[in-house]
Simulated scan of single mutants.
Amino acid sequence: MEESNNRAKNSFLIPFIKFTIPSILPLSSDFTQETRALTKRLIIQTKRRPATLIAGLFQPLLWLILFGALFQNAPIELFSISNSYRHFLTPGILVFTSFTGALNAGLPLMFDREFGFFNRLIVTPLVSRLSIVIASALFISSIALLQTFIILFIMMALEGSIGFNNFLLIAMILFLLTCALTMFSISASLVLPGHIELLALIFIINLPLLFASTALVPFSFMPMWLQIMASINPLSYAIETIRSIYFITDWTLATSVVQTIWGTCSLRKVISLLIALNLLLGVLVTSCVQSKIK
């Protein structure tokens, strides 16, 4: 009788263990194969519909050209060490490109839900359902980073090289921010009822988060209430860090890169903040996946 109870308990725990262990240590070859196949599917979709990729590249370039031309005669020396407003604007455009691409990460998953393909994936004997999320995150992060790197290379050709170490650090900051926002978008796509609501959420938070950051102007040009919002906005920390690294050739983890109303943040603090944001949103998206497959 006791053995049967233990077997019953074990059989009850097996589904939980099968889901939990791969989600914590997704290193098996089967999990890698699943993630690769799901990522390849998203790549094929993009090849068939390249308009989204092209639009995501031209939008920030238009922002860079139009805003750079609009404020080219602005007294840039009053609030920046940049040579021009376009030089000052570039870090904001880089972060905005990653931000926009990551916010759209949940759309393919939302359309899969509406067309019934997501239900087919759930009933498929996958090693871990988390491969669905990781494939979407890897794909969108790669696309967003590709778009930002193209813009960065264009600016490096116009303004000059920034150094290999600075380039790697900027890439790491953009990668952490993109992964965090991608997980937020995927969580929203699993919680919201349809793509209309998801698009409405993207439209609502897209421009407000951009203007409530230091992408276009520094903290000193903002009223106090907007400074408070910008100091909470994680985009501001990424923008100011990239802007500082863009001009600092000899930096360390203790180098001050962000000056907010709360005080000065070093490079170590900014990286820790972005890692903590990724962990928090990773827990959120994992709980959303678990609740969706029950």
Rank of each mutant, 00 (worst) to 15 (best):
L280V: 13
T252K: 02
A188D: 11
W262I: 15
R243L: 03
C265M: 13
Y246L: 08
L274V: 14
T241E: 00
A276M: 11
W251M: 06
L267H: 01
E240N: 06
S220I: 15
G194R: 05
Q259D: 11
L209T: 14
A188E: 12
R268N: 10
S272D: 11
L235E: 06
T178F: 00
V217N: 04
P218Y: 06
L253A: 07
F184E: 13
L181P: 03
F203S: 15
S189V: 01
G263V: 12
G282C: 08
L235I: 15
C265A: 15
T249H: 11
I232F: 11
A254Y: 04
F221W: 05
D250I: 01
L274G: 12
L199C: 11
G194E: 12
L199P: 09
Q259W: 04
L177P: 06
L176V: 07
V270E: 02
V258R: 00
I186G: 07
L176N: 04
C179D: 07
P193A: 06
A230W: 00
S213E: 00
I248A: 10
F219W: 00
M183Y: 14
L177N: 10
L209A: 13
I239S: 00
S189I: 02
G263H: 04
W262R: 06
A188F: 10
L216G: 07
Q227V: 08
F211L: 14
T182F: 07
P218S: 09
S244Y: 01
I239E: 00
T252Y: 00
G263I: 06
L273F: 11
L274E: 14
V257G: 01
I239V: 05
I245S: 05
Q259Y: 09
A215W: 03
Y237S: 11
I248L: 14
